[in-house]
Simulated scan of single mutants.
Amino acid sequence: MPVEPAASVWDFPPVAVAGASDVVAAGADLEPGTVLAAYRRGLFPMPDSHGPLLWWSPVDRGVIDVAGFAPSRSLRRARQRFEIRVNTAFDQVIRACADPRRPGSWIDADIIAAYTKLHELGWVHSVEAWDGDELAGGLYGVAIGGLFAGESMFHHKTDGSKAAVAGLVELLNDKYAAERVLDIQWVTSHLSTLGAVEIPREDYVQRVERAVGLPLPDAFSG
């Protein structure tokens, strides 16, 4: 089971103060207690290379409906090509996601260190798609009760990341599926093909408040 860290010395404002902005706050730190407090409030950190650390809560939040997930035929075929594993190659996954050669790469050394520490405490997990002995793709994210907040994904082989997303939905699809929240931050054209939709920030925050009190999925509770 996850180990609860020391409480944060920082207090985040309610997301409503951001108005029409996706950014709610700036500053603070990346200590485990701070990061977990943020996710429980509907926020996530993303560094700004030109200023302080920013804490985001998109006005239109991207989620995938676990209970209503209906994979396309191509996604089902992609999923069948790979074996899904959890937490067997976390360091490889987060560093692949942080590859500076990737367009829009934002994961820096501080983020890697913070989420690795949270992984060691049992809060952050990697979901991996394997093709035999080759890591074909994967993702990592924060699991708090019924919330899984996906942070980033990558692929080394075609459809590797898609298979990891489909595998994650399978892991979350238990008797609490209708109440679980699979957060993907923003909806992109790629994620929309995997079933991602937008919901208002206020709805997202309310769903998270309920979800964090649920039991962890079996795959992340060991």
Rank of each mutant, 00 (worst) to 15 (best):
F220T: 10
V124Y: 08
K117P: 00
W106A: 00
K117I: 05
A6P: 09
G19C: 06
L216H: 09
L191Y: 06
E128R: 07
R73N: 13
K157N: 08
D11G: 06
S126E: 07
V127W: 03
E170K: 13
F12V: 02
Y39R: 04
P45H: 00
W186C: 13
A149R: 01
A114Q: 10
R73K: 15
I107Y: 08
V24Y: 06
P47F: 11
R180H: 08
R61C: 03
E128Q: 01
P71Y: 09
V169S: 03
G150Q: 12
L36M: 03
A163G: 11
V142D: 03
F44P: 00
V59G: 08
Y115L: 15
G68R: 09
A211L: 10
G122A: 09
L139H: 02
D22F: 01
S74Q: 11
L214G: 08
G150T: 07
L75Y: 12
T34K: 04
L182K: 07
R101C: 02
V165E: 07
P100Q: 02
P100C: 04
V93Q: 02
G138P: 00
A166Y: 08
L36A: 01
V3N: 14
V187S: 09
D218W: 06
Y39C: 02
D11H: 14
A26N: 00
T34V: 02
L168S: 11
Q80E: 13
E202A: 15
M153Y: 12
S49K: 11
K162I: 14
E179T: 13
H125P: 07
S49R: 12
G19A: 05
P5Y: 06
F148K: 14
S21L: 01
S221P: 09
F12M: 02
Q80T: 04
V165A: 13
E31V: 05
D203N: 15
D22A: 02
A98P: 02
Q206E: 15
K157W: 06
R76V: 05
V24L: 00
A7H: 12
H190Y: 14
A7E: 14
P100W: 01
R102A: 03
W130T: 04
A163P: 08
D131A: 11
A38F: 00
R81K: 13
V187W: 13
I199E: 14
S57Q: 03
W123N: 01
